[in-house]
Amino acid sequence: MKNRIEEFENYMRSSAEEKKQKIAEMVRDGRADEARAVRAGLNMYEVMTALFGAALKKTGEGEEGFSREFHILKDNVTGNWKRNLEAAEKHGDAEKVMIEESKLETVEEIVRKFDSLF
């Protein structure tokens, strides 16, 4: 379990670093507006790391219930973003759609990694 926790934390750190580099590249490349959406995605590493820590704290390092707790916390948080996305789509708010999609896509990537480990 310890090794997998470490692997997940390393994944989060390296992925966040990659995103930071991508943002810098996009800004240099004259794509500052799109970079804003990627930046919203970057924040997800911090949010999901906090949820990961909270789930660990609640269930301890035992396997039992840890994954379920993480998913419950994740669903609570992403539920709002999904509603924001739906509202933005309904009202044709293209900028918000782009930002909310970026957040949710990043969360999906993180959850895929989490599920492969726990």
Binding site: D33, E34, A37, G92, A94, E95, V97, M98, E101
Partner: peptide, 13 residues
């Protein structure tokens, strides 16, 4: 090679 949401955003602008 960009998402539809991104294209929509740019087209709106």
């Amino acid at each position: 090679g960009i998402t539809s949401a991104t294209v929509s955003f740019h087209l709106k602008k």
